[in-house]
Design a protein around this nucleic acid. Sequence first.
DNA 1: GTCTATAGGATGATAGAC
DNA 2: GTCTATCATCCTATAGAC
Lengths: 178, 178
Amino acid sequence: MPRRNADTREEIREVALDLFAQKGFEQTSLREIAERLDITKAALYYHFPSKDELLVQLVAPLATDLAAFTAVLEERRPDGERAILEDYFDLCERHRRVFQGLLRDTSALARTGSLLQVLHNRDRIDRLLVGSDDPAERARAVVALGGLQDCAVLMADAAPAAYRRAAVDAALRALLPA
Amino acid sequence: MPRRNADTREEIREVALDLFAQKGFEQTSLREIAERLDITKAALYYHFPSKDELLVQLVAPLATDLAAFTAVLEERRPDGERAILEDYFDLCERHRRVFQGLLRDTSALARTGSLLQVLHNRDRIDRLLVGSDDPAERARAVVALGGLQDCAVLMADAAPAAYRRAAVDAALRALLPA
DNA sequence: GTCTATAGGATGATAGAC
DNA sequence: GTCTATCATCCTATAGAC
């Protein structure tokens, strides 16, 4: 029998993103997604050819958005760094769930408790650095530390010594109120 | 028969971290780890009670280091923010492989090509923002954007509007040369 | 400390009826 | 579009010999 809601495909995307964000891609089975929608696994395969393709479609909006952002930045020198940063911030917010759930799959660490331990420490460091629990104050620390942390991942091609000074300087500027 | 090398346990850790970092935790089977070491799965279970426990032991050094860092920060107001940031940077570098391989499990995205797409864009944005390929210059952008991106993940408890201004301001300071 | 053998289960995916 | 039934494969983990 046909189901209550017309747009099953969109419902699947919604549930899948929710579960992936919550438990990670690998640890979410198609059975779980199907159960939550009260359909069968086989029905999923009518709408999506594979689990991987489902993932691809979930990340696609972010990928598209990011590509557009890059394109704009490339074709003309835009209206100032502030505007760029604001736009990038908005982009991250817009795809917050994707960032949270798909760009870092922390499920395994969460299961073992390691993740909580790390995040707890990080959170305390953030608050201590700025001496406040206020989100606006904390953000300075998150930017500074998050930025440094990102270097470890994204600058894998360069020797740490080559950018260490610059990175620390930048983080310091971010941390200190203007 | 006993194996060539005495410290099998350490060899296992080494190989496991390598494979986890490369393919992600969930997608690395104990069979693969065993094969690479020329032992059997059963032998792994002599050294580690479970796959999860193996993971825990791999993250443990980072967790410990981070806890110590927090403790120092807590007990006394340290020698200035610069030193703190430098220490945090060093900590990240020290555990670079863990950050790369375990704190973000990007394996699924990598398999589908989505990851490459996202990282490629991010890399170009970084270079464009500072107008240079020099690592030292790029670091400013990585810090600024990485910091903003981290906000989307770590400040999940706060309303974006509450820290948006502060975060963008901090990122801007990080981006602009002093 | 390492092996063989296997239990016991979940998973992604497909075939074919309705 | 959704179902039932099933396949083939892989997995973590354990028992027990050597």
